[in-house]
């Protein structure tokens, strides 16, 4: 059969794409890399579980409810760290989310187009500052500021609440929460800004045409429309605050205790790992307990992120919802 095309074209037509060896190899190679990510995640869980096994055998689920941490007597429990993590994250969300929402509303709804982009860049610079630099700044700038001015003022005004009672330590839960609040602002404000920008224009126009003021149209037509996206943004912020390590470790005081007062030193899941993992000998119960704390941290962070990504993806559609 005479084939009236040039050689390359003929080869291409005779061997349609997908059937050549090069294609097969390339497809297999890139596919392997893709699934390596899933494998890595699975391996992560398995390796941590294996290392945590001695501790799980010794303490079972009681580990989560115990307040002991005594390497000499081999008694370990996770409760003070879970408590510290939850309280600092809660303070971070309490202070950080309203500010982030305000930023998102300003950038998406109120600011003139010309300052929107530069403002976004500047807020994102907060995310480019390494965690340990936040810790350094927190230690030398924020801690003195809060200890001298903010904490006494809070104690004076709201001292009837147990969380603001007792001695004011310079490194404490509250300061750690404030640093975390600053650190989650870029994430929460960026994702909720995207959610607000994804609200169709006719939502706003409908509210305005009924005589709503700009704030009323934002509240009724924009915020409520975007609430699942905003909720996803808040969850992403929670995930970030939950696992943040260095800044917290440097300002929280690192004491394994549960105190009602926010002015008392404490410890989080990540800070105890950063502080103690190096001390646990291989195979020891202490190392097992520390890795089990890491496993708890990972599982909860995993669930928070799965939930948050799901919310954000569903709201923004698969294309844009991907990265912070």
């Amino acid at each position: 059969m005479v084939f009236p095309f040039r050689r390359g074209t003929r080869r291409a037509l005779l061997h349609p794409t997908g059937s050549s060896w090069g294609d097969l190899l390339f497809r297999a190679g890139s596919g392997a890399a893709g699934f390596a990510i899933l494998a890595l995640l699975a391996l992560l869980a398995v390796v941590l579980a294996i290392n945590a096994l001695p501790s799980f055998r010794a303490f079972g689920f009681g580990f989560l409810g115990s307040t002991a941490w005594n390497p000499v007597r081999d008694e370990f429990g996770a409760l003070p760290f879970i408590y510290g993590t939850l309280i600092t994250s809660a303070i971070a969300l309490l202070l950080g989310v309203p500010v982030s929402l305000g930023i998102a509303i300003f950038v998406a709804e109120l600011s003139p187009g010309s300052i929107r982009v530069p403002l976004t860049y500047v807020i994102e610079l907060l995310a480019a500052v390494p965690s340990v630099v936040y810790g350094l700044w927190g230690l030398f700038v924020l801690v003195p500021l809060i200890t001298t001015y903010v904490s006494p003022a809070l104690q004076g005004a709201l001292g009837f609440l147990p969380i603001f009672q007792g001695q004011i330590y310079d490194r404490n839960l509250f300061t750690a929460g404030v640093i975390l609040a600053i650190m989650i602002i870029p994430t929460v404000s960026a994702v909720s800004r995207d959610a607000l920008l994804a609200v169709p224009q006719h939502q706003r126009e409908a509210a305005l045409s009924l005589g709503a003021t700009r704030w009323e149209s934002i509240r009724i037509a924009v915020l409520s429309y975007a609430r699942s996206g905003i909720f996803g943004a808040v969850m992403l912020g929670f995930g970030r605050a939950f696992g943040e390590t260095m800044a917290v470790t440097m300002v929280i005081g690192n004491r394994n205790a549960i105190s009602a007062s926010w002015f008392a030193p404490a410890q989080t899941l990540s800070s105890i790992i950063a502080n103690s993992a190096r001390e646990g000998a291989a195979g020891s119960l202490e190392l097992g307990a520390i890795v089990e704390l890491g496993l708890v941290l990972m599982l909860v962070a995993f669930l928070i992120n799965v939930f948050a990504r799901f919310m954000v993806w569903r709201f923004l559609g698969k294309r844009e919802g991907g990265l912070e």
Binding site: G34, F35, I37, L38, L40, L41, L43, L44, V47, L48, L236, G239, R240, F242, G243, E244, T245, S270, I273, A274, A277, V291, G294, L297, M298, A301, F302, I304, N305, V306, A308, R309, W313, K318, G322, L323, E324
Partner: peptide, 19 residues
Amino acid sequence: VRFFADVMTGLPSIVMGLF
């Protein structure tokens, strides 16, 4: 793969170190 890659970028870095 896409979804869990996104989830992994949100996992605390200390967990990766511990891994």
